[in-house]
Design a protein around this nucleic acid. Sequence first.
DNA 1: AGGAGGCCGC
Length: 698
Amino acid sequence: MASIVGCLPITSLTSITQISQFPENPKSLILQQCKTPKDLRQVHAHLLKTRRLLDPIITEAVLESAALLLPDTIDYALSIFNHIDKPESSAYNVMIRGLAFKRSPDNALLLFKKMHENSVQHDKFTFSSVLKACSRMRGLKEGEQVHALILKSGFKSNEFVENTLIQMYANCGQIGVARHVFDGMPERGIVAWNSMLSGYTKNGLWDEVVKLFQKILELNIGFDDVTMISVLMACGRLANLEMGELIGEYIVSKGLRRNNTLMTSLIDMYAKCGRIDTARKLFNEMDKRDVVAWSAMISGYAQADRCKEALNLFHEMQKGNVDPNEVTMVSVLYSCAMLGAYQTGKWVHFYIKKKKMKLTVTLGTQLIDFYAKCGYIDRSVEVFKEMSFKNVFTWTALIQGLANNGEGKMALEFFCLMLENDVKPNDVTFIGVLSACSHACLVDQGRNLFNSMRRDFDIEPRIEHYGCMVDILGRAGFLEEAYQFIDSMPFPPNAVVWRTLLASCRAHKNIEMAEKSLEHITRLEPTHSGDYILLSNTYALVGRVEDAIRVRSLIKEKEIKKTPGCSLIELDGVVHEFFSEDGEHKHSKEIHDALDKMMKQIKTLGYVPNIEGARLEAEEENKETSVSHHSEKLAIAYGLIRTSPRTTIRISKNLRMCGDCHNATKYISQAFERMIIVRDRNRFHHFKDGLCSCKDYW
DNA sequence: AGGAGGCCGC
């Protein structure tokens, strides 16, 4: 023991050692009053000087403080432990429990092994700690060995041990075995029920959570806040508002509204069930909002497709001096990606680096998606390379991003690299890969990949994959083959599939098949305005103006609601929205003038407005309309006057760009010497010097 | 207690 004394800083005295009378039994002093590692070292030194450390009860109190209560003192605890002559089982238990919750839980197992070798008797506390270590390290094999030992040692029916067995099996993905242990218990306390419930939540078995909770209600055995947290999580995922509200009412009736953890779960449940405003009301009523509550609320807005509000709330969070963490940032970046809010997202990335936040797989994946959705695919690749651990989500996000940014070939290269790295693609990965083929006109590769799905990867193609194939064939002009392909599908085609074909018919001016496609679509989705417009535009392209007008008038006759075009532009971190339906009167004279000037200037370069298109739209709107009213033109004009020369203008639009706007933007990029990046409904257009990266293939 | 990728088109 003498060797420890040498490393103790006994020079400075803190308030604790200044206590004039050191108590007879200092156990509670050690456990309750040592608040920092420094306090503990002072007390330890005092105990050494007075030789009180020879008392095992006191030594164990010091061990408990160092191993369990104080942060970063596990090594200190170990050095004390290693100097105990013959540690008793209680000393081992403290150490094993401490190690189980530290960075390397496998050290707990090593100590357990040593305990066994030294023939020190283990008890229920030992087993429950060792199982916790197995649970944390996802060590199923080790856990099973411990389980065998438990059966041999006769601790099988100890409730503590059985509860941790449930947790261990559930954590290691063996939910069936966990349930088996649960079912075999002669008596189950609420901890056993809660362990089983949280096991189901960890494995995403939300239905089972609700079922088990219903059993708790039937048996009338009572439950606690831990139970409610699991059930609320499940209600959120299942959108089971009925049961979620039941628990909400219970919380209010029992006066549990001060329980912040519980309230956060309730807020999250309401948000996930689409009751975002109810969630917000509860959030506002909380008296202390921590980072988790803020994150839940921000993520709620993001999931409800109210990304502008998500970002506003994030700004409020910062004003409230609550530091965001990597979970918050995932929702914030998601919102930036949805809105195309590049500046905000770039700042978030900077903040993540500055605060040295952990680049978790989720956060890294979200960053990749964010950069890709803002048209900065190079940055996506950079982030991808920086990430130390990548999973199938990460690879898929990158592949999808490359595909949407016109880098179809590179997307396929990364797909090969993914396979070389032994990451198994899933169904979504194939959607990314196939859409890469369609955007890059890689017909044969597309066919081969589609055929390999079931054959080589055991993935059953779903309607989405068939949809991609129709897109690949149709865009490339193989309309007949695309039609046959739809015919050969093992399930009935949906409206999306027919709409894909219809869009290809417009691109390749095939009236007959376009009419057929619309017939199919209207049977499935009769109130979808876009399809009539597609057919109308196809007629217009081949000069059948009367037919084009007739089809458009159908929209009005059938009282179908049109989706207004909307473009976003972010300036100095603020997102501005422009709607085509606003008409010019809604915008300031400044924007109106800028638009006029812009259109005049590109006309001098040879831009010819699509008068026919304008006439068609005017017919339908029953009012005077000019070709310059589309929202992306407004947003670009606004960008031109509000940003300094040569700055890149970035627009994101909710619909596909129309041919006229695409053509005009090429001229604008030339006339004003601007790089213009437009993200439309499903891909990117990088305009520069009068050309577009999509090579007019879209 | 809070977090990631998804066919078409308007």
